[in-house]
């Protein structure tokens, strides 16, 4: 034990101090956090939208025996789930947005949204299929049309069943946005790398952003569990 604990403590303190305070480096984290939150938020919204639509199309296609429709849905789901997210990100970035003044943030949000949509679609489909057939029949027998019955009777019950799985998907999404840096988006992870390259000490900024992610995810989990409890108020016997 040649290293005294006070020396050790001071070194750690210094590295973290350097990673945060000089040149207002903390601003870089805040900016990165904003970008991560923005991408996650819009990707989640887009993912839910795509997911609900694809899931309903797929279920409807099965109910009404429209083979071509379920084929299209399956191609989308298989391609997205069968290829790495980073590759999708690079392809979309280089394929569509090749002009100089590309809005990388938009590309990121759209790409993550399309990606998440495939997973959300499968989760929602399983949720819809978990609801007893009698519920649709009861709705239809009262004169409600297919879409209204889906919206007012099937989906609310399906969502309650799949909330935990949906929460997992959103948590995964938030963490996966960390690969956004490959298309020159300065998100939280990129901010850490940037600061590390300035201080020649990559570990402290990485630990700092890891904490940011952890807090984000724990916040989201908390939010979801509150939501779950509220939805469970009409628990079945």
């Amino acid at each position: 034990m040649y290293l005294s604990s006070s020396w050790f403590g001071k070194t750690i303190y210094d590295s973290f101090y350097n990673a945060i305070v000089p040149d207002k480096r903390y601003l870089a984290y805040i900016e990165g956090l904003k970008v991560t939150l923005l991408i996650s938020f819009f990707a989640i919204i887009l993912g839910i939208l795509i997911g609900v639509i694809v899931a309903i199309l797929k279920v409807t296609a099965t109910n009404y025996k429209m083979k071509w429709l379920s084929k299209i849905c399956n191609i989308y789901i298989n391609v997205i789930r069968g290829t790495p997210l980073m590759v999708q990100l690079l392809i979309i970035y280089n394929l569509i947005f090749t002009s100089r003044n590309t809005n990388e943030l938009l590309v990121g949000a759209v790409c993550f949204g399309i990606n998440s949509g495939a997973y959300v679609a499968e989760i929602i489909r399983s949720g819809i299929e978990s609801i007893d057939r009698g519920q649709m029949e009861a709705g239809r027998s009262l004169g409600l049309n297919y879409v209204t019955t889906m919206r007012l009777i099937i989906l609310p019950q399906a969502v309650r069943n799949i909330l935990p799985a949906l929460g997992n998907e959103f948590i995964t999404l938030i963490k996966e946005t960390s690969v956004a840096s490959v298309i020159a988006i300065t998100d939280l992870t990129k901010a850490a790398q940037y600061i590390g390259s300035r201080t020649w000490d990559i570990l402290p900024p990485l630990i700092i952003v890891a904490l940011f992610y952890l807090i984000l995810v724990m916040g989201l989990s908390k939010l979801l569990s509150v939501f779950e409890r509220r939805m469970a108020k009409s628990d079945r016997s």
Partner: peptide, 19 residues
């Protein structure tokens, strides 16, 4: 849908909406 409004139906499994 309009026809069904005039034909009420009751099921073996009740099919009340639990939510």
């Amino acid at each position: 849908n309009q026809i069904r409004q005039k034909m009420g139906m009751v099921f073996q499994q009740f099919n009340l909406f639990p939510h």
